[in-house]
């Protein structure tokens, strides 16, 4: 049996907005296994951002159980959560969130700076390797304003994989990109997935979700469908798009 990277059981999250209670998640249960490429779909207000925040250990659930790599995140201090984020999770954001006026290499090194076990030399080597993986060997010393949107997102992806996380969490990672570049990024994700990376991809675009092998759809804080699909190849889609 394949190992469950992520186990979520009956997860709820309630926000207190003024006197009102908002139930963003109303008992969500699913698990993601090693090597899966999952997309989490839903329109705005469906609770997918809340779910992503909890999956990314930025937020803690009101009730329910969440285990990442076999470790429960409930009853953890802020610093312990920070360490989990540092060692087990890689984030890719819609707006890249790269540090301005900082080279691609230094941006990628960033997560390792917060890990005392990594020496500065190892940090550099691992960051270079991560940039090679995303195909930016020749752009290492460029700053974000010298890079295109697609290249910036590649740097962000390199930053997400540099700490060798158990799961990559992408939040609308193609949201700021045009169709062609979106396909390129998706093909990069597929490539990483083939190399064994587990990826959870939050999006509201059905088109993008077709490139993943499993689609979880949320509505009003509940899972309404959880389907395995035949993932479309992003490279082929890209070739067709270019014709």
């Amino acid at each position: 049996m394949t190992k469950a990277i992520l186990q979520i059981e009956n997860l709820t999250r309630v926000f207190q907005v003024g006197a009102e209670q908002v139930h963003a998640l109303k008992g969500v249960t699913f698990s993601i296994e090693k090597g899966e490429f999952v997309s989490i779909m839903g329109s705005s207000g469906s609770g997918k951002s809340t779910l992503l925040n909890i999956m990314g250990c930025l937020d803690t659930p009101t009730s329910g159980e969440y285990l990442i790599d076999g470790v429960s995140v409930r009853e953890r201090t802020k610093n312990e959560l920070a360490d989990i984020r540092n060692r087990k999770i890689g984030f890719v954001f819609q707006s890249y969130n790269l540090l301005a006026r900082t080279t691609a290499l230094e941006n990628v090194e960033l997560p390792l700076i917060y890990n005392n076990k990594v020496s500065s030399r190892e940090r550099r080597e691992r960051a270079q390797y991560a940039l090679e993986m995303v195909g930016l060997t020749d752009r290492m010393s460029h700053t974000p304003n010298q890079l295109s949107g697609g290249q910036q997102q590649r740097v962000a992806i390199a930053r997400a994989i540099v700490n060798d996380p158990v799961i990559i969490l992408a939040d609308e990672a193609t949201g700021n990109l045009d169709t062609k570049t979106s396909y390129e990024i998706m093909s990069l994700f597929q490539e990483l997935n083939e190399k064994g990376k587990t990826i959870a991809f939050v999006t509201h675009e059905t088109d993008i979700a077709t490139f993943t092998s499993r689609v979880i759809t949320l509505r009003d804080g509940n899972i309404i469908s959880d389907n395995i699909n035949e993932a479309k190849s992003a490279i082929i889609a890209l070739e067709e798009f270019c014709k």
Binding site: K78, N79, Y114
Partner: peptide
């Protein structure tokens, strides 16, 4: 935003 990013990739509050 930078602070948010640093926290999301594992910076402690003290850092």
């Amino acid at each position: 935003k930078e602070i948010g990013l640093r926290m999301s990739i594992g910076a402690h509050n003290s850092s």
